Amino acid sequence: MRNLFLKYLNNTISAEELKILYHYCRIDENDREIDVLIKEYFETETSLDNLAAHSNFEQLKDDSWKNIEKRLKDVPSSKNLVGSFGFKFSIAASLLILGSFSFYMFSRLKADKTRAIELQDIQPGKEPAKLIVSNGTVYNLNGKDEEVISDQSGIRYKDGDTLAKIASNELMTLMTPRGGNYKLTLQDGTRVWLNAQSSLRYPASFNGKERVVELKGEAYFEVAHNSKQPFIVTTASQKVKVLGTSFNINAYANENSTITTLVTGRVQINDKSDHKLQVLVPRQQADNNGASVTVENVDTDLYTAWKEGTFRFRSTPLPDALRQIERWYDLEVDYTDIPSSIKIHASIARDSNLSTVIHALEKITGLKFNVKGRSVSMMK
């Protein structure tokens, strides 16, 4: 069968051999071997990365056979056409498309590779996070994946290296740049994951009746339980009051609303005047647009995937997805003509280069993007 397949691709196959190959291709049990033959041909002819060929293979093969079915749907049964011109034509039609499939896949893979090269490569930002003390001292923190700990002895890295001695009454601000995130353990044991282009203002020690922090941007909290000292996260539009729980808050200034997603425990959402708005239970999300608060049940993993290093989109409007990408890669996106009606379904590693991410969006949406420096716009 391999020899017949190669003869067909080289256009040296006889009519009798063509008939044998055609019948062979029509037998379901031979599908796996046919796949192997086609893959071998791709790998030999294209000289492209084998993994790329395999990752695209199933979808392309499916598309190819759909074309075969479409073109042969009106062909009469081969049983009545043996030896006739019609039967020979049906063989030729099927195998022509099978052969065309190799060219189709080669063209697609070559186009994919060319497009990836055309797109400018930008890695996730490497600017350091900053820790700013209220006395004006600024510390550039080591590594985007590190963690600092605030306790009675001051500020130190998780590995034990001391950063600074800080008085217990000092206010601290942890700031992440575009393209960077950071982890923080507060004096009470509460852990915070701070997303890109965000800031958290907090005291070196919690000495009052409440543990109050101020968030701009996005953060995930695992709050240490203390029933006598509630933990409060304030943002521009609300206050979230908890005793001990884990939750995510998205409060970026360029988003339309503040999104609070509860993973475990229980939280109460108040307005800026401290009037109760909503109480959330696990797997609920509150959308506060400043005028009203709506609550729905959600898959919380979708909204916390960023702290595990993944963009996760599910029915996400394209502009919303682009805002996440914009913050992570330190871009300026022109949202003119970018349709909000297009919804994204994808999971993309946040340590990917920008070209990989943009190329994935192009494949998903069918759109093309211009990337010039750090500016991104949609091709018209």
Rank of each mutant, 00 (worst) to 15 (best):
E16S: 11
S257H: 14
F313T: 02
V242D: 00
G83Q: 08
E218N: 09
V293Q: 04
G143A: 05
S102C: 15
T310A: 12
R71M: 09
A251Q: 07
E127K: 08
N353D: 07
L243N: 08
V267I: 15
G125V: 01
V263I: 14
N288W: 01
E218L: 04
A286S: 14
L131H: 02
G373F: 03
G99W: 02
A349M: 09
S227C: 12
N248M: 03
V242L: 06
I38P: 01
E127I: 03
D49F: 13
K307A: 07
T44F: 08
L51A: 12
I20P: 04
A286R: 03
W328E: 04
S47G: 09
P177A: 09
Y303T: 06
N256F: 13
V212A: 10
R191G: 01
E118H: 15
E255R: 15
N3P: 10
I117H: 12
K88P: 02
F206K: 04
V133W: 02
R312I: 02
A204R: 00
R283Y: 05
R32H: 12
D63C: 14
G366I: 03
Q229V: 09
N270H: 13
L4F: 04
P203C: 02
S237T: 11
S64H: 05
D151W: 01
L95Y: 08
P282I: 00
P128N: 05
K61A: 06
K241N: 08
T114D: 15
R108V: 09
N270G: 07
S134N: 13
S107Y: 11
L174A: 01
T173V: 09
E33K: 14
S355P: 04
A291W: 11
D35L: 12
D287Y: 12
F87L: 11
I97S: 03
G217H: 01
D121W: 13
I122N: 04
S77D: 08
K372I: 06
Q123C: 10
I34F: 06
T12R: 14
K343E: 12
N169R: 03
T137R: 10
V281K: 12
E147T: 08
I269Q: 01
L194R: 00
D31P: 07
S257W: 10
K70D: 12
V240N: 08
N56A: 08
T258V: 15
A346P: 08
F42M: 07
T261Q: 01
N3Y: 14
I342Y: 09
G265A: 10
V82K: 13
G217F: 00
S55E: 07
A15D: 13
E33S: 11
E16K: 14
S341P: 07
N30Y: 10
A92D: 12
